[in-house]
Amino acid sequence: MAGATSTNADRASGDADRQALVRALAGVAEGSEVALRDVYSRTAAKLYGICLRILSDRQEAEDALQDIFVTIWKRAGTFDAERASPVTWLATIARNRSIDRLRARGVRPFVTLDAAADVADTRPDVVANIEAAQDRDRLMECLDTLEARQAGAIRAAFFQGLTYSELADAGAVPLGTMKSWVRRGLLRLKACLGE
């Protein structure tokens, strides 16, 4: 596993990637096409992967990706490297834009609250550096400590953009019950990550 074999060289390389991405975003904020191209070449595959994961449709994912880079172009000035990691910032835009599309589509072809259905594809990549891989391992460990229905609901919200009421419908439980599952899961998750 990447986490177990991380070296100083890996970490330095991850930091360099992150710094390069921060600089590129600063360039985009100043209106540089070259900088946007740089951000694109560093992150498009990762962001497209996120779009495909959420939308499960190539055409929709391509439209979302275009939308995402327009958003990056428009909002790079609001990225603050002191407050957020560039990869998280970009991935959050990708997830939000993809979920916007999913919701606009209206129909959810396949909704599941089964925690096992969303299991990892396991290929950490260039963008997801060693640090991210460690964060990932830790989050997975913590999710594993939750009840299956709690983890399943959290994953469904994250990847399928389901609201509380949609989760309650999908799980055929009262809204209050679903809220209570998710909140207990989130509290436990935070406590586990904080340890």
Partner: peptide, 21 residues
């Protein structure tokens, strides 16, 4: 955002079509 973004670390990167840029 940072905590949950770790879920995305598992999403495999997929090269978009070359015409995408």
């Amino acid at each position: 955002h940072e905590r949950l973004a770790a879920l995305l670390a598992d999403v495999a990167p997929i090269e978009p079509d070359a015409a995408m840029w």
